[in-house]
Amino acid sequence: MADQALQEHNELMERDIFAPKIPEEKMHSSFQQIRSDKEHTAARRLMNEVFGYFHDTDKNFIREFQSNGFSPRVFELALFAYLHEQGITPDRDHPAPDFVTHEENPVAIEVTTTNPPQGIKEENDPACIPILPEDMPEANRAFVFQLGKALRRKLEHRDASDRAYWEKPHVQGTPFVIAVGAFHDQHAQLHKMHLVAEYLYGHRDILGHDESGNITVTRETIKTHLWRDKEIPSGLFKRPEAANLSGVLFSNAHTVAMFNRIGTEFGYGPHDVALCRLGSAYDPAPNASEAQKFGYVVGDRAPEERENFSEGLVLFINPWAATKLSPQALPGIPYFEMGDEGQVISMLPAGFLPFDSKTIAFEGEHAHDLARYFQLAYLGLIPDSEH
């Protein structure tokens, strides 16, 4: 019995992505922070639960998750959870691309992330991180540059046999998609999907209103994107190097915070930890041209309104790709495609559609009261005299 118990314990530890597998000095700072923090209890339990049915093809997931591959592995695990929610079992028999599905509308997905510039140290203390960047336009320019860098890195990649992802035998003829998550700085999750669309399609829509109050749209062509002394061409989808890129799957939400929120709604978190989620979302009101604020305390919403792993994903379809992608290959999420007259059309599902968000944790006996107060203050529902 003792031997069996020891074997079961060892097997459990092998599947525990938070059990140290590398020396502490080599651990990623974010991994070190969340592996023992009380406020991340729900995230740890849910991430381990998802990893329990995740096939680790190259046997490197845990080591990379604990070290310099932390952000890409978090994003990869969250994408796997999304596919699982949709009833899709991806082929994980090959190390690359990360996911290949064989449904009625197949797709091959390679996962990547925007990463901090070399030499820039991440700041992990929430008390030191302002809610918004000091210069949002500059932050948006940096985001587009990091997005382009991450996508080009995957398009240029070749394996030991000098094959691109779409040239591998098990991928040929299957639409190829790069999934990119925003992780390049502490405000990465604030950048909205329209910036991705502008870079991929090479034009932006400027919204206005006519004399009757109806929305008007003026299209502006974009040739290049500038950031500091760097310049990259716009319209990646139109460029020759993207001929085999069928689409881009983007997220600014699939982070540890998402695992923490969903895990908390499952009841995996301590009773004295409360999470308050704040952000902006799509406004379905007629002629609305601005996002609307939202704020809620995780666990307060009705069961049918609770978050899932499809939330925050957006699919951009390349109309010029050699292999066409059906939006049904990645169901349940918004997608962008090109209309007959060259306009970019967004197809948005009904219901709550967040554009960006931040999650703030409160701990202690009155954590939930503080979180609800913070929520109301953010939404402007508390008079200034009571702040």
Rank of each mutant, 00 (worst) to 15 (best):
P137E: 02
G364L: 01
Q328K: 15
E76I: 05
R73P: 06
P240L: 06
M258I: 04
I222L: 15
F31R: 05
E138K: 11
F374P: 00
N124S: 10
V180K: 01
S71E: 13
V297T: 05
M27I: 02
E25V: 08
L77W: 12
L325I: 02
Q146K: 11
V217I: 11
R44G: 07
D205K: 14
F61P: 14
V177F: 00
G364C: 00
R261Y: 05
D37R: 15
L147R: 05
V111S: 15
D125H: 01
V111Q: 07
N287R: 08
H94K: 15
D3S: 12
N60E: 15
W320N: 08
S310G: 15
H9D: 11
D16M: 07
A197S: 14
R277D: 08
E265M: 06
E64M: 11
H94N: 15
L200R: 09
G52E: 10
N60V: 09
T113F: 04
P175N: 07
L79Y: 12
I232V: 00
H184P: 08
T224F: 03
G339V: 04
F54H: 14
G351I: 05
E103C: 09
G263L: 08
G295M: 01
N124V: 09
A179L: 08
D185I: 00
L249Q: 06
W166G: 05
R44M: 08
D98H: 09
P327Y: 05
D369V: 06
N105W: 14
P95I: 04
Q186D: 01
D229G: 00
D98Y: 04
A197P: 06
D16A: 11
A367I: 00
E307S: 12
